[in-house]
């Protein structure tokens, strides 16, 4: 790396580039800008985090790759991408694991996840946060869905990622990966019968204006972002600044989760006023259908799923 000068004291300066895929209007973008601003202020300009929304810089797997390769870079991504390096993360983000945001937040603070973070550090990934939560993804369809059988033969749009496709397929749907840019017209024109996404997406992108008026509260995927920095870069930062950076990213996540909780009720009400109907689903039937995805994969810690379920049961 180049833009930093080694040493402590007043002349220390590090420029980090923070990249994510969210648009300027979304809460995650605002949160990241705020965190960057606070860190700049509290370190008296020593740690400058430049934020780049909308994948202007490498994002998704390429963002994590920058971190792994030791770039002066902060990647803010879905934690399932860490699964390429520490397979246990794939288990943590298996579908329908969590029934509330609190369950997940609490789990990330327990030793089981702390151990996973330590494994990530061995791969060069320092995890600064895992809980920039932006909502559960639910099914948004033309007809009411309560069981996996209801999804039979329905084309549901997913992002072009294997985990989403596998999830929707296991749930009983015909997973149809489409770029987001083509999704709304595909729903309008009947190329697909529905999509999946959070209530914030539903409202923000006006999905409710189309023919898909039913939302089944499957909570099948937890939408969350983690914050990652290279361990190499992290170790070079003076201790005093490290604690400030860590504190501010933790604080930013806490604030985003409380904001999310307070806003979600209003968003649901607003959607209902536009004629959107919400329904609960037969969770056990879906979890049964998803059982094949709770199977251990290569490289996972033996019994990882049982351990996670045991932790979650202890909270319920």
């Amino acid at each position: 790396g180049g833009q930093q000068e080694e040493g402590t004291g007043d002349d220390y300066k590090l420029v980090l580039k923070l990249s994510h895929v969210f648009s300027p209007a979304e809460q995650l973008t605002k949160s990241m800008d705020l965190v960057a601003e606070r860190i700049l202020e509290r370190t008296n300009g020593a740690i400058e985090i430049q934020t780049f929304p909308q994948a202007q810089l490498p994002a998704y797997k390429e963002g994590v790759e920058q971190v792994v390769r030791g770039a002066d870079f902060i990647s803010v991504e879905d934690p399932s991408f860490i699964g390429d390096y520490v397979p246990d993360f794939k288990a943590l983000y298996a579908p329908m694991m969590y029934r509330s945001f609190d369950e997940y937040v609490e789990l990330t603070q327990r030793p089981i996840v702390e151990e996973m973070k330590a494994k990530a550090e061995e791969q060069g990934i320092k995890i600064l946060a895992l809980d920039y939560i932006y909502g559960f993804r639910n099914l948004i369809t033309k007809k009411v869905i309560t069981t996996p059988a209801d999804l039979n033969g329905m084309k549901i749009r997913t992002p072009g990622s294997k985990s989403y496709i596998d999830t929707l397929t296991a749930m009983g749907a015909n997973a149809t990966p489409l770029p987001w840019g083509e999704t709304l017209s595909a729903v309008q024109q009947g190329v697909v019968d529905g999509l999946e996404g959070s209530e914030f997406t539903n409202l923000g992108t006006k999905v409710y204006e189309g023919p898909t008026k039913n939302v089944a509260n499957t909570r099948h995927i937890l939408g969350t972002c983690g914050v990652y920095i290279s361990t190499e870069v992290w170790d070079r930062i003076p201790e005093e600044y490290r604690s400030i950076v860590q504190e501010e990213f933790t604080k930013g996540a806490d604030e985003m989760v409380s904001l999310l909780k307070s806003q979600h009720g209003d968003v649901v009400k607003e959607l209902e006023s536009y004629g959107v109907m919400f329904n609960e689903v037969d969770g056990d039937a879906f979890r049964k259908a998803l059982a094949p995805l709770y199977k251990e994969q290569d490289g996972m810690t033996p019994g990882i799923f049982d351990s996670i379920f045991a932790e979650l049961d202890s909270m319920r």
Binding site: G1, Q3, K17, P58, R69
Partner: peptide, 16 residues
């Protein structure tokens, strides 16, 4: 230009 990232990673952009 000391940009703080390994030069070969620009190839990410060739692919993406």
């Amino acid at each position: 230009a000391s940009v703080g990232t390994p030069p070969d990673l620009i190839l990410q952009k060739f692919i993406t």
